[in-house]
Design a protein around this nucleic acid. Sequence first.
DNA 1: CAATTAAAAAGAACCGGTTCCAAAAAGCAG
DNA 2: CTGCTTTTTGGAACCGGTTCTTTTTAATTG
Lengths: 327, 327
Amino acid sequence: MVTINDIAQQAGVAKSTVSRYLNGGSVSQKTKDKLDTLVAETGYRPNTFAQSLKAKKTAIIGTIIPRLDSYSANEALISIDKGLREKNFQLLITNTNQDVKREIESIYSLASQKVAGILLFATVVTEAHKKAIADVAIPVILLGQQAGGLYSIVHDEYDAGFKIGKYATDLGHKNFLYLTVLKADVAVGQMRKKGVLDALSESKETTIELVETSFTFEEAYEQIIHLLPDVTASYIICATDNIALAVLKAAHQLKISIPNVFSVSGFGGYQITTVVSPTITTVKYAYQELGEIAVENLLLLLEGLPVPKKTILKNKLIESESTKRLN
Amino acid sequence: MVTINDIAQQAGVAKSTVSRYLNGGSVSQKTKDKLDTLVAETGYRPNTFAQSLKAKKTAIIGTIIPRLDSYSANEALISIDKGLREKNFQLLITNTNQDVKREIESIYSLASQKVAGILLFATVVTEAHKKAIADVAIPVILLGQQAGGLYSIVHDEYDAGFKIGKYATDLGHKNFLYLTVLKADVAVGQMRKKGVLDALSESKETTIELVETSFTFEEAYEQIIHLLPDVTASYIICATDNIALAVLKAAHQLKISIPNVFSVSGFGGYQITTVVSPTITTVKYAYQELGEIAVENLLLLLEGLPVPKKTILKNKLIESESTKRLN
DNA sequence: CAATTAAAAAGAACCGGTTCCAAAAAGCAG
DNA sequence: CTGCTTTTTGGAACCGGTTCTTTTTAATTG
């Protein structure tokens, strides 16, 4: 690989001159011409390590995502990528495969790679997270989860849950099955659920059964196909669209008609909810906006400017074919 | 940020001693203990830039993907990520947003970041690609597309197309609509199509109309919803599962019953084809295997070992509910 | 206990850039 | 043509690690 020294030597100038040339400093027309051709010929590109080593910083933003096939993370990543590109930052994506330990590792690992900032799609926020974030002296913004004292951008999970609960009881439903995810997930497992429960409790004589399932489609499907025949509820509230899809498939497999036997709704507003039949009632989250604000805030932090500790994003109920009025 | 010099100074030893300690060289128990606590206290982590600068290489593999929400790329990325992690390599993902110019840029950019190797999910392979790959003296493997002289791992596109064509004519279909993508895409736009056409030509009195559409669901849907009412064919061959999904949605919107009015099939074997109703007949590609082989071959190349220039992956026809026998 | 050997630590050079400062070259006015 | 200013260039130091060589310290042995 050709280095700045090679270029300097071939041009018969000092490497400091080449460096100045590369960075738009004052060089004579003569040496400029000489270096122009030399750089073009050799295809020379500065070693970014050497640059970053000297500069003590990079133009790289690290993102930590739980899964590579997460719809919500991908949607947000698209706008993050776009936003960063406009500001000449590079995006580094790290996958943790939903392993909390790897989330922590990734924070440290990104820090030793001297990324300028970190966007963390956390599943849970433990003390280890807080310690890691404090240890690495790098701006970190949590996405989709919140924790006291840390910068975070979150969806209004409680409101989303409440909207669904209200909507379902307004349709006249009384008996519910709620397919949730592990409680440790504060945003989905707790806030969202609390919204649902609060809304249901405003209506008379409602019952709700809680069953914990998985984020992944396959695991959820396996569980649901066994569970579905015994469901007596008239409305299944799924904690994510993925779970709702699993219910739909299981129902189709078991020849259970939706929404006639029971109504189903999800959370997320994944595009796929509009593609399947029946289309799924859901709450659409502002993933794209999440990404935009994440980039905006992170870049402000990098400049040392003040940024709100917590941003809450609005969502929207999308009424669709998978739910039915009872009264 | 704490550096090796800080550690050395606080421990009262030379930085070379600290380096030796960190890399498992011989150090006395006394200094070992001292450094143990010091490193733990300060949370010291070596600056990877400085390390890579000296080592003149990294343990990072760069991947270039056309879209962040590409199912096929994501499926492959999952196994790539897994494979690399096992070998202690890090994965760096670069998105090009389907911009060929950015594909080329990314190759150079990854090179100046001194990645050990590059996995390129190319959409097309131009001369500029070949030049870039030659310029950067780094192993590059093309995924999903092929080009003379370059390492590549591809799906058997021709065979996939032929399978669908054979299957459809066996069902008794004669009149086809083929929704394809831009011709510049050799793998999908040409090879796959050729397989279909060859299979159809083996059957008597078949007609086929070709219409070019987009890789993205939304664009394809917009086009198809206008086109569908006038379709006279009995079978719509979609060049990707995404397009097939768009046809399904448009049909549902227009109250056209599939497979009764016409049959529909895709290519890819996306999970979602098994979730929708009707489930979609498709050819399932070995994305996971693609990722595994990609990692395996790239690591062999890094060791200077011989690797086949071209690997062709098998695929499998998945017969499903979206297609119907005519005879 | 001195001589020999092994283990541990220190010191310097290097990786490939950037930046600061001093030196050289060029330009300009009197 | 001289002296002064401005522009261009060269040299050295530095970023934070690793590695090689040399020196110091500790252990072993006759």
